[in-house]
């Protein structure tokens, strides 16, 4: 079986791109968009729509809604832990990179942390665009080796008797951490609870959410 693609050629292209691309990020992306638009391959208004979708519609507010519902509704939580793609689709949130979503639950004894050491896999349709630190070398290199040190930099101290479970997203499975409901917040409405759920708590770099 021979490859449809030419990796040697791409390695060579990258060597050329190293010196031939415009000098700044903004100019490089502008060059790319201009070339694609000129060739009739992309409509700039479609790019606008994607940007709007991931700025105003798709983002961590969706994940927060899923978490708040799981806190309020034990049956929903059960479905979420058993079949997360189906459970998020009840809210219309199934989409890019979430067809093989798994939800991992924090407890008094367990803390979960999600990383992608090989690239930057992330459950886009429920958390939106990944934060810069998630995609950076410092987090990707250290999360699997020194998770407690990483968490300490986020201001999260994990007691010695709590087990840290790191999930390295090496396949098409994606992970969402289900944080614990803040003490005393159980009676709040689902809408109010969504405000307490931070993006970082759903990646695992935040743990002790507070009732505001």
């Amino acid at each position: 079986m021979s490859s449809k693609f030419d990796a040697g050629k791409v390695a060579e292209i990258h060597q050329h791109l190293h010196s031939h691309l415009p000098s700044e990020s903004a100019l490089r992306v502008k060059a790319l968009e201009t070339l694609l638009v000129d060739r009739g391959l992309v409509n700039p208004q479609t790019i606008d729509a994607w940007v709007e979708a991931y700025t105003d519609q798709i983002g961590p507010k969706r994940g927060a809604r899923v978490v708040a519902r799981a806190w309020k509704d034990a049956e929903y939580k059960k479905r979420l832990l058993q079949d997360a793609p189906a459970a998020i689709d009840e809210l219309g949130y199934l989409g890019k990179a979430t067809a093989h979503l798994k939800v991992v639950e924090n407890t008094d004894q367990v803390h979960n942390l999600v990383v992608c050491t090989l690239c930057s896999c992330y459950p886009f349709s429920i958390l939106g665009v990944a934060p810069a630190w998630y995609k950076a070398a410092a987090y990707r290199s250290r999360a699997v080796r020194d998770p407690r040190g990483v968490l300490a930099e986020f201001g999260v101290t994990i007691d010695d008797d709590i087990e840290v479970r790191v999930w390295d997203s090496t396949a098409e499975l994606r992970y969402l951490v289900l944080p614990q409901c803040p003490p005393g917040a159980e009676d709040m409405s689902e809408d109010a609870l969504t405000e307490l759920v931070s993006r970082n708590s759903m990646i695992g770099t935040d743990r002790n959410l507070v009732k505001s």
Partner: peptide
């Protein structure tokens, strides 16, 4: 880590 809690995409 360059810690960031800002949720701007």
């Amino acid at each position: 880590i360059e810690v960031d809690t800002d949720e701007t995409p």
